[in-house]
């Protein structure tokens, strides 16, 4: 017996190390391959201006994906992020353009209100799905409509524009070619990574995603953690809304349509399991970068819109298939 178990245990430990390395490195390698391919096939891919562009274009999706990672890790899904982004943006836009406010105060108030709006919907998603045990797919499908309707209602379907000049300038600021907005997203990546890998809170989220009942029976308040995960996602959406406004200088109730799907794609490509319990923020960062690099590189290659869309779809499926393959390879 001893022999058997020591054998299986050591094989397991080897497998596990290999698995961890493969998981994150696999996505990283895919990203590097993409970068090499585009560098060789296009003239402008590896220029500092283009890298700045890619980082700018990745930012909003990355921020949403960080929040989405928390929700997917507990086995949930948030389909409302695109709509909530629009709602948070128009609330913030309304606050920012209130007459008679000092620009600095206006921007600060707007930021707070965008995050508050996101948190409000995150709480709603979390409370309803956790309290009644309704699949978050259904609850967030509902809030998707509620948030969109609320955004239209608040604005009477009109676009809000002309934010303070300093805010607008801040949105285009770069430090050594790296957009400030992307640095904010990176900061969120670091926070998310820390929370998920180094705190009790993160540990319990993984526990819930893997085995909710075992986690509950180990004395953890599953309800609280579920609501918290959705609330974090909502807060990330609020930050995403402010980033949107800083980058484009408008806030409209019809922005963000379909953003949830991009965020989910980034999380999945990043190796997080849709059934929860497995994945990481670093994977999500790489997943978002793959989507951004692909969108950028395919345009530089001069591929048509329709080809581009098809290739992006293939990549999503390929990522999940590769993930399955990796899993099988490392399991045996």
């Amino acid at each position: 017996m001893d022999a058997t178990e020591i054998n299986s245990a050591s094989a397991g430990s080897l497998g596990n190390t290999a698995k961890t390395v493969l998981r994150e490195a696999g996505i990283g390698i895919a990203l590097i391959v993409l970068i090499i391919v585009f560098s060789l096939t296009t003239q402008h891919f590896l220029t500092s201006a283009n890298i700045t562009n890619i980082l700018t274009q990745v930012t909003i999706n990355l921020v949403l994906s960080i929040g989405m990672t928390f929700v997917i890790l507990i086995g949930g899904i948030d389909l409302s992020v695109g709509s909530v982004l629009a709602f948070a943006a128009v609330v913030a836009g309304t606050v920012m353009t209130l007459p008679g406010l000092d620009p600095t105060v206006a921007v600060m108030l707007a930021t707070v209100s965008a995050v508050a709006a996101g948190i409000l919907f995150g709480l709603l998603n979390g409370l309803v799905s956790a309290w009644w045990g309704i699949p978050s797919f259904i609850v967030t499908l509902g809030t998707l409509n509620i948030a969109r309707g609320a955004a239209l209602q608040v604005t009477g379907a009109s676009t809000i524009y002309s934010f303070p000049a300093a805010f607008n300038a801040f949105g285009s600021q770069t430090i050594y070619g790296v957009p400030v907005l992307f640095l904010i997203a990176l900061l969120l990546v670091a926070i998310g990574w820390f929370v998920l890998s180094r705190t009790v809170f993160g540990r319990v989220l993984y526990g819930i995603g893997n085995n909710e009942e075992a986690t509950r029976l180990a004395g953890h308040n599953v309800f609280f953690y579920k609501v918290a995960a959705f609330t974090i996602c909502g807060a990330a959406v609020g930050i995403g809304a402010i980033i949107y406004m800083a980058r484009l200088n408008i806030a409209s109730p019809i922005i963000g349509i379909g953003f949830e799907l991009n965020a989910i794609a980034a999380v999945i490509i990043g190796g997080t399991s849709l059934s929860g319990g497995r994945g990481s923020i670093i994977g999500t960062l790489l997943g978002a970068c793959i989507i951004g690099v692909l969108a950028n590189g395919l345009i530089l290659l001069g591929l048509s819109d329709f080809m581009r869309q098809m290739i992006t779809g293939f990549v999503i499926i390929l990522a999940v298939v590769l993930d399955k393959y990796r899993e099988r390879l490392t399991k045996a």
Binding site: H44, T47, N53, L248, N296
Partner: peptide
């Protein structure tokens, strides 16, 4: 020199055009 959709969308137009500009300065 190029024609692409941005689905009537501000953010998408921003990204798509930035990339077109990189390809064709």
């Amino acid at each position: 020199i190029d024609s692409r959709t941005a689905h009537w969308e501000t953010e998408e137009a921003n990204s798509v055009f930035a990339n077109m500009l990189t390809a064709n300065p």
